[in-house]
Amino acid sequence: MQLVVARIGRAHGVRGEVTVEVRTDEPELRLGPGAVLATDPVTAGPLTIATGRVHSGRLMLRFEGVADRGGAEALRNVLLIAEVDPEELPDDPDEYYDHQLMDLDVVLADGTEIGRITEISHLPSQDLFIVERPDGSEVMIPFVGEIVTKIDLEEQRAVVEPPAGLLDPAEAETAAAGDEAHGERTAAPEPDREDGAR
């Protein structure tokens, strides 16, 4: 199975080094020197990592055969793809690969169907499940422990306890109007990040 593990960013310096946007929780495993990665577009690769280092909080890579800034710039926005055994599991039992979570049914604790996961969006602050509802509409559910209370791969489902308004914006507006009528309005706390999807 192929998984996108990074996207190449800008060239850095004049010796072929590039910044990369990491899309895996295991960069030391997937993006280490010697790793051979497929690419999207296919014509850009495969690429073999020659060196890697962290500079100002960003991962920098240099690939074999790419020795100057021009060669590095030509790789900008190329996706790096690793071949992963579909049976492989993360070391942490509370973490999951994207392919394990795709197509899971999303339900409330009482079994009420919400939809199914069609995409996982990795944002700087947290990961989001993009869930397609039975009527074809989509809802975004933050992948944090307070909301996604259980992932059951055997049953192929994710159990959620969404806060008011997450699934039904009209519900949130009604609640906000009620708070204003009582002279108080409470902002929802920022959810903590919980790295889970890879």
Rank of each mutant, 00 (worst) to 15 (best):
L79C: 00
L79M: 13
L80V: 03
L80D: 05
I81W: 03
A82P: 01
V84T: 03
V84P: 00
D85E: 05
E87R: 10
E87Y: 08
E88C: 10
E88K: 11
L89C: 06
P90A: 00
D91C: 00
D91L: 06
D92C: 04
P93N: 00
P93F: 04
E95N: 04
E95D: 05
Y96H: 07
Y96S: 06
Y96R: 08
Y97P: 02
Y97T: 01
H99I: 00
Q100F: 06
Q100R: 11
Q100I: 02
Q100S: 09
L101Y: 03
L101P: 06
L101N: 02
D103S: 11
D103G: 08
V107T: 05
V107N: 04
L108V: 07
A109L: 10
A109D: 06
A109Q: 08
A109M: 02
A109E: 09
G111T: 05
T112R: 10
T112K: 06
E113D: 07
I114M: 02
I117N: 01
T118W: 10
T118V: 15
E119C: 12
E119P: 02
E119Y: 12
H122M: 08
H122V: 10
L123N: 05
P124I: 11
S125L: 09
Q126Y: 08
D127H: 13
D127P: 00
F129G: 11
E132D: 09
E132V: 15
E132M: 13
R133T: 07
D135P: 04
D135Q: 00
G136V: 10
S137L: 09
S137D: 13
E138A: 12
E138K: 14
V139W: 03
V139L: 08
V139K: 05
V139R: 05
I141W: 14
I141M: 11
P142F: 15
V144C: 03
G145S: 14
G145V: 06
E146T: 08
E146L: 11
V148W: 11
T149L: 09
K150D: 08
I151S: 03
I151G: 02
I151K: 05
D152S: 15
D152A: 04
L153C: 09
E154T: 15
E154M: 12
E154N: 10
R157C: 15
R157W: 04
R157G: 12
V159D: 03
V159R: 07
V159M: 12
V160L: 12
V160F: 07
E161K: 08
E161I: 09
A164N: 14
A164T: 15
G165S: 03
G165K: 00
